[in-house]
Design a binder for these strands. Sequence first.
RNA 1: GGAGGGGUGCCGGAGUGGUUAAUCGGAGCAGACUGUAAAUCUGCCGCCCUAAGGGCUACGCAGGUUCGAAUCCUGCCCCCUCCA
Length: 391
Amino acid sequence: MLESDISYLLKRGVAEIIVEDEMAQLLRAGKKLRLKEGFDPSFPDIHLGHMVALRKLHQFQERGHQIVLIVADWTAQIGDPSGMSATRPMLTLEQVKANALTYMQQFFKIVDKQKTEIRWQSEWFDKFTLSDIIQLTSKFTVAQFLARDDFSARYKAEKPIALTELLYPLLQAYDSVAIEADVEFGGTDQKFNFLVGRELQSMMGQRPQQCFMVPLLVGTDGSQKMSKSLGNCIGVTEPPEQMYGKVMSIPDSLVLTYFELLTDVPDQELGEFREGLEKEKLNPMMLKKRLAREIIAQLYDQKAAAEAEGHFERTVQRKEKPEEIALGTKSGKSLQDYLVENRLAKSKSEARRLIDQGAVYINDERVKDANYTVQKDDIIRVGKRRYIKST
RNA sequence: GGAGGGGUGCCGGAGUGGUUAAUCGGAGCAGACUGUAAAUCUGCCGCCCUAAGGGCUACGCAGGUUCGAAUCCUGCCCCCUCCA
């Protein structure tokens, strides 16, 4: 394996590797590595934040390494009730299976299914007895676990920590033993769990796994990590036009990071982008358009990317009407009622507000009269991009 | 077992008898601006009727006190922390 290739694998879009030198050695030795990736079936949807690690996995896979995907059907029941959120409901076996299926459909948009081994935690944990659990727990101390950022912060803040939560890292660690992982992949927030795995493996006579951590992707809001519960994410199954729009809506300051983490655009070109932005020779909008195309091309294809761009240019940049306008209900009602009926407003009050604010247009003319009677074939627009045609 | 803290709108979080539909922040929506659905600025942001204005429903649940309660009292449910 070429040194430049190794360097690319270990540097591009990587936050931290424990231990980086060992990792490089393993690659130079040309050994086929077992790459562990776990997923919690309580959240089956993959977004661009997850894609960062998955892209890395794919890069390794292309170089002959073996991905082992672990369906964490046991740890899913423990959950991570961050802060105030309600205790996660226990999933039934059927739900877990359904979620796993959904997840894998998305997972295999990014990695190669043929070169992936799928394992379920229940393969080993179903056989666990109380004595196994006691043995496992006896290997670590409370102090060790309280050292974890999240736990110590909560402990200091007098916030609850469920006992089962302490079990979470342990179970995850045991997975590494069960599948004899060489490397575990994930975001930097997984560091503690990865390290427990590393330690447990070595206690149990295995070679400790390498911990490969990618940065957490910042979401479309530009400040917090991308996550479904924060509503700032772009899902990998979203339709291309929607994905395109969401990429365009990320803050300009995020564009280079996104390129680095989510595309194969070479580092050298990224340098040019950076310089262009600093000297204001490049318009961030143009870069974001390129970014959106790159991402969509990976998840769909070039054609979809081009179409999504066309759609964006027409509807957003040139403010043209979409090719197809959804048909609404029968005309003859007041505008206010019509908006509610067609779900362009949640309530009559909201409809009235929209009208008062000048957000409602009929056939390209702003209408301020809530009592306007909707005529047949009126093209009603609310805000910048919601259209409906009356019937 | 004992002591204490708390349950407020989509979320976080103020408010401890009346100008409180409820400060503020975030999210969301809209308008302006813009080479971007970036940034920035402005407005809106429970429901219903409206020209102004008005009505109704809301602060864990159920009662009560009061001219008037998110705010006081009683009971109940739930959550958390500490000590043992």
